[in-house]
């Protein structure tokens, strides 16, 4: 059989846009998702440029101006129970809150996806052992698990993050496993096996491309959960320690002012709400943009 290479210049080949280019184009057609993505981007920029954006020092308080309502001269969003500028604290709070939302999920994504893909592709005993182990963690409600782990490890950002990572590995591994199992039985994987390729090569070339997208989308949806859990841990005094500005912690400390300044008290909650719903809407948009059919 002759397969003499004919001289065909690479430029002559009509190339379709790559998968992610198409996904991007489809995503841009969804206005709601685009707005949500812009909100997320704005929040991230706000966190990065916090020192330049914040009008006051978030840690500098003054007992004279405690619990001023929003709209006070010089303090557009009022002041907290120690007289610190709310706007500055909310801006700086985005740093820790987003950090606690994103980092644990990404670490858990790396570990969980690896566990899930391996057990999904291997099947059999490997699968049983790995997934049953995950199920043990899964059996606890995530909030309870996070609280218990953080409690056992002791308070602090790092321990709180570790607790969150451990909480998120099992669900990500579960999703990765089920997506991989679905892909493994498809004919194109069979065809790759029939061409003599080994397991690692098949995973790299044929499985990853088809499973990482869905797993990533699922992990994105966990960012909002992670933020809320982190806020919860801080609220319980198990995550961030005062006086650091964190939305969950702010919600906790401002609780005392619930009746005198309800509006003030709600502000950190509003931020958590906006962030998590933006992440969720963006993820939904991404998911439908990725669902490309003939």
């Amino acid at each position: 059989m002759s397969t003499a290479a004919e001289p065909l210049p690479a430029a002559a080949i009509l190339r379709s846009p790559g998968y992610w280019v198409t996904v991007g184009r489809r995503f841009r057609r969804d206005p709601v998702a685009v707005i949500a993505a812009l909100v997320v981007l704005a929040l991230i920029l706000m966190a990065v440029f916090a020192p330049w954006l914040a009008p006051h020092d978030p840690l500098q308080g003054m007992t004279l101006r405690r619990l001023k309502p929003p709209g006070t001269e010089g303090f557009p969003l009022g002041t907290d129970e120690l007289g610190r500028d709310m706007l500055s604290r909310l801006i700086f709070g985005a740093r820790i809150s987003l950090f606690m939302g994103i980092v644990p999920v990404f670490v858990a994504l790396a570990v969980g996806a690896a566990i899930g893909i391996v057990s999904g592709y291997a099947g059999g005993w490997t699968n049983t052992i790995l997934m049953r182990t995950m199920d043990v963690f899964f059996a606890f409600p995530s909030v309870l698990l996070a609280v218990a782990l953080a409690g056992a490890l002791g308070p602090g950002i790092f321990n709180g993050m570790l607790a969150l990572i451990l909480v998120f590995i099992p669900p990500i591994a579960r999703v990765a496993e089920s997506v991989t199992t679905g892909v493994r039985t498809r004919d194109f994987v069979e065809a790759a096996r029939a061409s003599g390729a080994g397991a690692l090569l098949i995973i790299r070339k044929h499985v990853l491309g088809n499973v990482l997208g869905p797993i990533f989308v699922y992990a994105m949806s966990l960012i909002a959960v992670s933020m809320i859990l982190a806020s919860g841990l801080s609220f319980l005094g198990l995550g961030v320690k005062p006086p650091q500005p964190d939305w969950g912690l702010m919600l906790n400390t401002l609780r005392t002012a619930m009746y005198s300044q309800p509006l003030l008290c709600a502000l950190p909650g509003v931020m958590i709400f906006i962030t998590s719903i933006s992440f969720n809407i963006m993820t939904d948009g991404l998911r439908s943009a990725m669902d490309i059919k003939a």
Partner: peptide
């Protein structure tokens, strides 16, 4: 080598 019935499922959708 083998050719499968389902022409769609037997090609990796992420590859050209």
């Amino acid at each position: 080598q083998m050719v499968f019935q389902d022409s769609y499922a037997s090609l990796n959708p992420r590859l050209t």
